[in-house]
Design a protein around this nucleic acid. Sequence first.
DNA 1: AGATAAACCCCAGTTTTTTTATGGTTTTCA
DNA 2: TGAAAACCATAAAAAAACTGGGGTTTATCT
Lengths: 222, 222
Amino acid sequence: MKTLRILAVDDHEMTMLGYKFILERIVFDDYNIIVDTANSFDAGKQKIEDSLHSFKYDIIFLDVQLFPPNEEQPHNGEDLGILARKMVPESKIIFMSSFSDNYRINSILKSVDPDGYMVKTDIDPKSLEQAVKTVLFEPPYYSSKALGAIRKKMSSDITLDSNDKKILYHLSIGTKTKDLEQHIELSSSSIENRKRHLKSLFGTEKENDLALIVAAKNRGFI
Amino acid sequence: MKTLRILAVDDHEMTMLGYKFILERIVFDDYNIIVDTANSFDAGKQKIEDSLHSFKYDIIFLDVQLFPPNEEQPHNGEDLGILARKMVPESKIIFMSSFSDNYRINSILKSVDPDGYMVKTDIDPKSLEQAVKTVLFEPPYYSSKALGAIRKKMSSDITLDSNDKKILYHLSIGTKTKDLEQHIELSSSSIENRKRHLKSLFGTEKENDLALIVAAKNRGFI
DNA sequence: AGATAAACCCCAGTTTTTTTATGGTTTTCA
DNA sequence: TGAAAACCATAAAAAAACTGGGGTTTATCT
């Protein structure tokens, strides 16, 4: 009887208990599954550090948002993912995100390259089991809605550099154009030029910013 | 009892019969599956055209290579896919490829954006059934090896323009650097510059072309 | 091994693209 | 309606990419 060690990090105690309950009753082959939990960045980090000196986790589940959205917190799930990859490269990492926020998905796929990515509305006992098995034997596992976002990105031939992405992102969260200079290392007229360029790329010339954002969202960039 | 119409296009008669056999014995809900076949570009095109005036296919399976690789043929599976998308946008398209040729996968995901992509070594009765169901209800379906290629691409932050891609592709099929000018609209020194640039991007500075090709392959670009 | 071709490297001049500053017009909204 | 923000146009400066011509090194073939 082998043991499969899983760590689940989520700030909602109850959902985490749900995961624990479901995961631990998965049966396959001669594995015994035990699930450890943590409800914050620091707690998760600590558990992973501890695992270095005993048994490393086979799978680490990470919630993208480890805090209520309004609070300004220093670290989120993505940071923990980057850290975990460095500390225990052999552990599989599966991200869980409340909704299919394309910008985040794209960002995490690049920064962490997780072995799995699940949008929470896709998660149920069956898909969780599928994710665990797939990730162990032939990763990656992407849930249906995550695949939808990935598909959009792959089928688009528009390529944006990091400045373009930042502009789109900040516009989408309501940053005013005049305040964009504070977040992007470019002059205001360059930003204006890039916005014009972006609008032509997404076919929203002469339209307002909202039209651009919507188009970029539809194509999976935000 | 509803009817699910499937068209399978493959130049190997026997494999196609295999698909037909497997697909037609899939049982789910109250569907009756019938599989039509075609073994060439023209035959496939004809079947699709005919379907316009009777019942359109629910799913079209397309082999990427419709001809022996050596023969110079005017059209391949990708072309048929592009055509099919135009003629019957409501039909789901699933590509099948002999091996995980990243260059082709990337190209087809952009040009056709199929609802499914399966690498042939991943195909078995179970995955075929999964593909059919997924494609109908929550596309896309990508087989395990296809997902591997997609993952590589998504996790890389290197972006190449079409000239870079052409250079890599031609180098990978053995075209000599001095003959590259014939395929790419650039001067020889520009091509040299780009090769140098590519090598620095892929971390193979001062190494030979093979090292570059290998690195690009590993990252899913070829 | 020697000869030849291909690959590689470097530089200077040119072209193209991107950035920037400036000054203006239009839109938005309190 | 008046002010702030967004938008547009232009020209100059800077950066990046292209090109042609040199050369040296490496690979290939007999």
